[in-house]
Design a protein around this nucleic acid. Sequence first.
DNA 1: TTCACGTGTAATGTCACCCTGACAGGTGAA
DNA 2: TTCACCTGTCAGGGTGACATTACACGTGAA
Lengths: 120, 120
Amino acid sequence: MPLNSAELLAVLAALGHVQRLRVIEELAAGRVHVSELARRLGLSRPLLYMHLERLEKAGIVTGALELSADGKAMKYFELTPFEFRLNVDTVRQALRADQDASPGTSGNEEGPTDMEDTST
Amino acid sequence: MPLNSAELLAVLAALGHVQRLRVIEELAAGRVHVSELARRLGLSRPLLYMHLERLEKAGIVTGALELSADGKAMKYFELTPFEFRLNVDTVRQALRADQDASPGTSGNEEGPTDMEDTST
DNA sequence: TTCACGTGTAATGTCACCCTGACAGGTGAA
DNA sequence: TTCACCTGTCAGGGTGACATTACACGTGAA
């Protein structure tokens, strides 16, 4: 099932920033904890927190609090494989998904191009 | 050739708003002039202008000033077919395109998944 | 002339996003 | 204890996106 408009907009907003693109690039190499990631990207930690939060809400990354061998708390983030398609159909599907959630007026169907593909 | 990060961000920002999604949906049915479009969407005309401007800069829509049979000036907008793909590779390609424009440091290559497809 | 329609833009306000700096708390090692 | 790490959050400011309102201007028809 494709995304509705709110979900689509969340993804677009999450990807719509250079720093977050760089976060994705960095996490593509493997999981990293927050402080280390902030150091690599040259970002302040609070700022990186905000970016990671947005990415996580959109389902692009996943965070997990773990304990290192030292016993210190480390928050590791890793990339969730994603594959989105942007064209007129996916846009229309997102908008129609909103209406279908409300009192359905009509029930027409067309050839659907599926939006989400976790096939890597 | 894929987009660089600035171009990618322009597309993401252009699509990242409900009203603009609705504009795309409306223009998918055919070309419409601004005032008519504003009426259909229930938007103020100046506001719609801003949205159309953003969409045009991103290459999603195209505007053309024409004269109606009455001799009145009408600005018609129509949809440019687009097809974008969003995944880790396209993100990395966008970021690498930025570096390649600057003094090239390294010249490595991988399997490219092309970003833009005007194949409708 | 007045009306109804269209384009285009300037002035203005609100608000979310982005970013910095500071703080509170926890751990293990010197 | 002090240091060097880490997590988590909050208060503040700057800036641009979003949205409304009003204006200037042109056309054809009543």
